[in-house]
């Protein structure tokens, strides 16, 4: 998987790569569909987590239980919604679901950020929206070219994967930007007092935040295929696809995701930089509040 685990959000927007892999792969000859009993066997593995938590007094049993229940309910709802949308096969419902997923991703990206300013939600949603939709449109319309173009089997999982990664990047980047700005207040202020422009005083923080946001995807790319088989490829292989075909798809997806993260991060940081500074080369410290 990509770095979906960094944020334990299992909102419907974050569709695992395996699902996309299975949609894109040709129908399998051997039957790999699961019965609910088999899903139950997998669920029972969670008991191991629960036992460890209780034995070590981690106090996480409740959290494990609620996370699991949330995951099951959310994915079940997703399954039902996808079933409906697949059957309808109309552009409007696909775009409506895509828009909903995008807004949820934008809001989720702000969730873990300690220091916020008033328009941070608007900026996050705008950045997720712009980055994910540009990249997904190019992928769908130019690279994958499904028939029809709005084919929900392709668009929804692909967008989900792009959104999940873009939101992780934006969240990491914004959190770092805001906390570094606070921690390095003395440095930033000193530079301003000695004649730095607002950009000269914030550039170090901006660069640091961009770097932090890009590290997970760069790590994922550099170990892809060595430490783990990426999620979408796993899905395609499970669905019986040709390995080299699956690899080609996976490479394409990696580039697409990296592009979405880069656009989303730079966009969200640029908007934040403009919102926490003003044209008089001042930092709007009053507007930055801890949550």
């Amino acid at each position: 998987m990509f770095d979906l685990n960094g944020l334990d959000v299992t909102i419907p927007g974050l569709i695992h790569g395996q699902m996309l892999g299975q949609f894109l792969a040709p129908r399998p000859e051997g039957d790999i569909s699961l019965s609910w009993f088999e899903v139950g066997v997998a669920a029972s593995l969670l008991l191991i987590n629960a036992i460890i938590s209780i034995q070590l007094g981690l106090g996480m049993a409740k959290r494990i239980a609620t996370s699991s229940v949330r995951m099951v309910i959310q994915l079940a709802i997703l399954g039902l919604v996808l079933k409906q949308i697949f059957e309808l096969s109309q552009p409007a419902p696909v775009l409506a679901l895509a828009a909903t997923m995008t807004i949820i991703a934008g809001v989720s990206a702000v969730k873990r950020i300690d220091y916020r300013y008033p328009s941070i939600y608007r900026n996050s949603i705008f950045s997720v929206w712009t980055s994910a939709w540009i990249v997904t449109s190019i992928t769908v319309l130019i690279i994958v070219r499904p028939q029809p173009w709005y084919s929900p089997q392709v668009v929804i999982p692909l967008l989900g994967m792009v959104l999940g990664n873009s939101l992780t990047g934006i969240s990491l980047g914004l959190d770092r930007f805001m906390s570094e700005l606070r921690n390095r207040r003395g440095e930033v202020e000193t530079m301003l007092a000695l004649g730095a422009t607002r950009w000269e005083s914030c550039r170090g923080v901006f660069v640091e935040a961009t770097r932090t946001a890009m590290i997970p995807i760069l790590n994922t790319m550099s170990v892809a295929g060595i430490v783990s088989i990426p999620g979408m490829m796993t899905g395609q292989l499970l669905a019986g696809a040709e390995p080299l075909e699956a690899v080609k798809y996976q490479i394409m997806i990696m580039f697409v995701i990296a592009a979405a993260i880069a656009i989303g991060v730079v966009l969200s940081l640029s908007l934040s930089y403009r919102n926490v500074t003003n044209s008089n080369h001042q930092i709007e410290w009053d507007q930055i509040r801890r949550h």
């Binding site: 003395g186 440095e187 202020e189 000193t190 530079m191 301003l192 007092a193 000695l194 004649g195 730095a196 422009t197 000269e200 080369h281």
Partner: peptide
């Protein structure tokens, strides 16, 4: 701000030598 300089109660320095810190304001556009 280079001409009317505010010196704060707590001085701040970047990592680097004293000379690098003294050079810092000369790297700014102003």
């Amino acid at each position: 701000r280079r001409t009317v300089i505010y010196l704060s109660q707590r001085p701040f320095f970047t990592t680097g030598t004293v000379e690098e810190n003294l050079r810092l304001p000369f790297l700014f556009k102003s």
